[in-house]
Simulated scan of single mutants.
Amino acid sequence: MKPSSTSPLTNESIQEVSKIFKMISDPTRLSILFLLQKEELSVGAIAQSLGMEQSAISHQLKTLKSSRLVKSKRAGKNMIYGLDDLHIFSILEQVLTHIEEQEQEK
């Protein structure tokens, strides 16, 4: 899904881009991604860090995993979650830079 700058975007490409933005538009999912950028964590550790129930975190992790933004591995009885793709942080860094520029202009 890497369209060149000379070819028009397909409807499928636009739908995929939209899906990624929907994934990162949720504050809880965004918080999870930032936590996992620092280190791999269990559901319990994520829930504790965010002050949320494990069931709510599990639901969000399932959503992130289905979008291939998060991956999991078994460590004993626990599942450990980490980022599946660091590219998402290029987008997030651009957004944060944009916000900082807007704040400086105020």
Score class of each variant (00 low, 15 high):
Lys65Asp: 07
Gln48Tyr: 03
His98Ser: 12
Ile46Arg: 00
Lys77Arg: 14
His87Glu: 14
Val43His: 00
Lys71Phe: 06
Val95Glu: 12
Glu93Asp: 15
Leu64Asp: 11
His59Lys: 10
Ala47Thr: 10
Gly76Met: 10
Leu96Ile: 04
Ser42Glu: 04
Leu92Gly: 08
Leu69Gln: 10
Thr97Gly: 13
Glu100Val: 03
Ile91Asp: 02
Glu40Tyr: 04
Gly51Tyr: 10
Gln48Ile: 02
Leu96Asp: 15
Ser66Thr: 07
Thr63Ala: 08
Lys71Pro: 00
Ala45Val: 03
His59Asn: 11
Val70Asp: 04
Glu101Gln: 15
Ala75Ser: 14
Gln104Thr: 12
Lys62Trp: 05
Ser49Trp: 03
Leu61Asn: 04
His87Pro: 00
Ile80His: 01
Ala45Tyr: 00
Gln94Cys: 06
Leu61Ala: 03
Ile80Gln: 01
Asp85His: 05
Lys77His: 09
Gln94Thr: 06
Leu92Ser: 07
Gly76Cys: 05
Gly44Trp: 00
Glu101His: 15
Gly76Gln: 07
Gln102Cys: 12
Ala45Ile: 01
Ser42Ile: 03
His87Arg: 14
Thr97Ile: 07
Asp84Asn: 13
Glu93Tyr: 08
Ser67Leu: 01
Gln104His: 14
Ser55Asp: 11
Gln102Val: 09
Asp84Thr: 00
Lys73Ala: 03
Met79Leu: 13
Lys77Phe: 11
Glu53Phe: 08
Ala56Asn: 12
Ala75Asn: 14
Gln54Cys: 03
Thr63Lys: 08
His59Arg: 08
Leu96Gly: 10
Gln94Leu: 09
Ile88Gln: 13
Gln104Phe: 04
Gln94Arg: 12
Ser90Trp: 05
Ile57Glu: 04
Glu53Asn: 12
Ser67Arg: 07
Glu40Phe: 00
Gly51Asn: 09
Leu64Cys: 13
Ala56Pro: 00
Leu69Glu: 09
Thr63Leu: 09
Met52Trp: 01
Lys65Trp: 00
Gln54Leu: 00
Ile91Lys: 12
Asn78Leu: 13
Lys65Thr: 15
Ile80Val: 15
Leu64Ala: 12
Lys65Met: 12
His87Ala: 14
His59Val: 02
Ser72Ala: 08
Ser55Val: 06
Gln102Ser: 13
Ile88Ser: 13
Gly51Phe: 09
Val43Lys: 04
Ser90Asp: 14
Glu53Arg: 12
Gly44Ser: 15
Ala56Gly: 07
